[in-house]
Amino acid sequence: MAEAHSDSIYLLQLTDCHLMPQPGQLFRDIDADRQLARVVEHLMGIDQPIDHLLLTGDLVHHGEAQAYRRLLDILAPLPGERHWIPGNHDEIDAMRAATSMPCGQEEVDLGYWRLLLLDSSSYPDGRGSGSLNEEELHWLQQRLAQSPERPVLIALHHNPLSTGSDWQDEIMLGNAAAFTELVAAAPQVKAVICGHLHQSQVRTIAGAQFWCSPSTSVQFRPAQSDFLLESEGPDSQPGYRWYRLDPDGSVESGLVRVDAVAPEPELG
């Protein structure tokens, strides 16, 4: 790993939080609010620099604006400028009603770097897939044509690469080929990150580094024909990824797992 530079920029990615519409409701048998709060508690107890906090979709599980405000309240102790994009379980209008923070497509000037956030929730198929619409693909092409000397990190919710899990490959980015073509034509794209998979992935895409962060809620077991939760070992724990963007265009990432909160005892 290259040494950090005084001008390095640190990004923290949290994804697939799946807060339920009401506090106390369980998502796949876990309290997603408590789990996210546990991740925040962990981050507050370590020396992890955070310049920008990236929330990469499926933040709330079909909830209204109050659920997104609850999410932002849980995250309030963390430093860093906030950015969020919707996933297939998010309600975009509710996200916009919760705060004035931009939602979806956004360009962020990071000095030496540029951050491009994309909304991959267009054209849902009802099973979990989503796509970038034509206007957004055109926007991305235009942005990549500008300042080609500055390295770029792209964030979106849906994975643009197949994973080897048949059921997940059916609900990946719907127009992944069009996206990959744009990345391949832009060598300044140094990294692409996503959520959606509820697992860690480290790959390459069209010459760029590709990372997926685990969920702050539950994890999905990789390389499966059918849906299966990861129920044992470190890979079943909630987690996050951090990214360090260096002035020379290099990028480093680290994966951190957090001990899950114990389930509430049953009464009676």
Rank of each mutant, 00 (worst) to 15 (best):
P238L: 07
A262E: 07
D259A: 12
Q224S: 02
D109P: 06
Q22G: 11
I193Y: 03
M101C: 11
I9V: 14
A67H: 01
G233L: 00
L43G: 08
E91V: 02
S131K: 05
E135H: 14
E266R: 09
D226Y: 08
G126Y: 09
Q105P: 06
R221I: 04
P263K: 15
M1N: 05
Q237P: 00
S129L: 00
P160M: 12
R221H: 10
G104L: 10
P124T: 04
S100C: 06
T204R: 15
H198D: 00
G207I: 12
Y10D: 15
T163W: 06
G130C: 07
L182H: 04
R244A: 08
M172R: 11
E41S: 13
Y123W: 13
E41R: 14
G24N: 15
D33K: 12
N133H: 13
T99D: 15
G268H: 03
V183P: 01
E64Q: 06
A262F: 06
D119Y: 00
A223I: 03
L116G: 02
V261S: 02
F210D: 06
W242A: 04
S250T: 13
F27S: 04
N175T: 05
S217M: 07
S8P: 04
E170D: 13
G87Y: 01
L53N: 09
V261H: 05
T163V: 08
L182G: 08
P238C: 13
S217N: 00
Y123P: 05
S225F: 01
R257V: 05
M1Q: 10
L229A: 09
D246P: 03
F227H: 11
G126R: 15
P263T: 14
G249V: 04
A206D: 14
R203W: 12
R96W: 08
E170H: 14
H83K: 09
M44D: 07
I205A: 05
A67M: 11
V39N: 06
A223Y: 13
S215E: 08
Q237W: 09
S253N: 12
G254Q: 14
S225K: 01
R143C: 02
I92Y: 04
G104H: 05
S120L: 06
S121P: 05
P102K: 02
R34P: 07
Q201S: 14
Q22F: 15
S217V: 03
V60S: 00
L132T: 07
R244K: 13
M95N: 00
Q199A: 14
S213Y: 05
E266P: 02
R127C: 01
D119M: 07
E181N: 10
P263L: 12
P234A: 15
Q168V: 07
L173W: 07
A178K: 11
I46P: 12
A2L: 12
R70F: 11
V261N: 06
A67L: 10
G126H: 12
M95I: 08
A176G: 10
E149Y: 07
L12G: 09
P21K: 02
T99R: 12
